[in-house]
């Protein structure tokens, strides 16, 4: 009896989680995939129409704007967060005084939800309330900063807010990585006469490769599922110029009574996530085996 338990207990303990995962993740992914091939409008209707919803989706200008925005947002957000996070981590790693305090300050935005970040930046970037008004009040009457209300620039305000929120987190990841670098390597480089920049560029950064990878995966999935930030900061506006796919999906599935179209957009988003995750998982699993 005891032996039976000992061999099977782990399975018994894991079973509920596995079932919940199977039903709530994969089951509903399957359900959504099914819906995306139906003509469902307000409520699910199992009348299959093939790829019609996908055709509609890709002929919808709003979806194309959302996809463009996702590309702009993801690339800029990941790139700027990485660079800023890395620089902050390197500076902090130079044994500055009050490191603990500074680290906490940089990390704090991460503790705030995107809704709060979005609302705060909405006020900061609003020309009539925030930066522009401040500059005018200080006497710089030519100062103009109107990205928030400009159809072509609104998506960049979302990048600003998201970078502000997440670069501290990237900093923490890199800081942990930098602390793990063997001091002897750095000393050896110094003995060989390498400058600080050379040491970082040729020795420390290559060692950070796993951290880069981890940071990119975390940031990429934050970017793809971004919803609340857009909702709070621009509401998708002006017009629908700053919509991201998640906002599109929500609007069409829940408030526009076009559930089939919403499901199709959700499946395309899932495809985007998989495109990032599968290579990562593949490389992870392979490196563990070898």
């Amino acid at each position: 009896m005891f032996k039976y338990l000992a061999t099977h207990l782990p399975k018994v303990v894991l079973a509920p989680t596995a079932i919940v995962m199977l039903v709530c993740m994969y089951g509903f992914i399957g359900w959504t995939a099914g819906l995306s091939f139906t003509k469902s409008r307000m409520l699910p209707q199992w009348e299959f129409v093939g790829l019609t919803q996908y055709e509609k989706l890709f002929s919808n200008p709003r979806w194309m704007v959302a996809l463009d925005n996702l590309l702009i947002f993801t690339l800029l957000f990941i790139f700027i967060s990485l660079v800023l996070g890395l620089l902050l981590a390197i500076f902090l790693d130079r044994k500055v005084r009050g490191e603990g305090v500074i680290r906490t300050i940089y990390l704090y935005p991460m503790a705030i939800s995107f809704v709060v970040t979005g609302t705060a930046w909405k006020w900061i970037l609003n020309p009539g309330l925030g930066l522009e008004k401040l500059a005018h009040d200080l006497g710089f009457s030519n100062f103009e900063f109107r990205w928030l209300v400009d159809q072509d620039m609104a998506i960049y305000t979302i990048v600003i807010a998201a970078v502000w929120q997440s670069s501290g987190f990237v900093m923490a990841m890199f800081l942990a990585g930098l602390r793990g670098v063997d001091d002897n390597l750095v000393k050896a480089a110094q003995v060989d006469g390498a400058s600080v920049i050379q040491t970082y560029w040729h020795i420390i950064l290559p060692l950070m490769k796993p951290v880069f990878f981890g940071a990119v995966v975390v940031l990429a999935h934050i970017a793809i599922k971004s919803f609340d930030l857009v909702q709070a900061l621009t509401g998708g506006g002006p017009g629908y110029a700053s919509d991201l796919p998640a906002n599109f999906m929500y609007t069409f599935a829940f408030s526009r009574a076009q559930m089939g179209l919403g499901a199709a957009s959700a499946m395309v988003m899932l495809g985007g996530v998989l495109a990032i995750l599968v290579p990562y998982l593949y490389s992870e699993l392979r490196s563990k085996k070898s």
Binding site: R62, G237, A241
Partner: peptide, 29 residues
């Protein structure tokens, strides 16, 4: 009109109003 058509009108109206598109473009969209 249905929520779907109303949504389509919303999208074009708001997109047009916030852009500098010409009237012809707006009507076409």
């Amino acid at each position: 009109v249905s929520e779907a058509v109303a949504g389509a009108i919303y999208d074009t109206a708001t997109n047009f109003f916030n852009s500098s598109d010409s009237a012809e473009q707006g009507a076409k969209q």
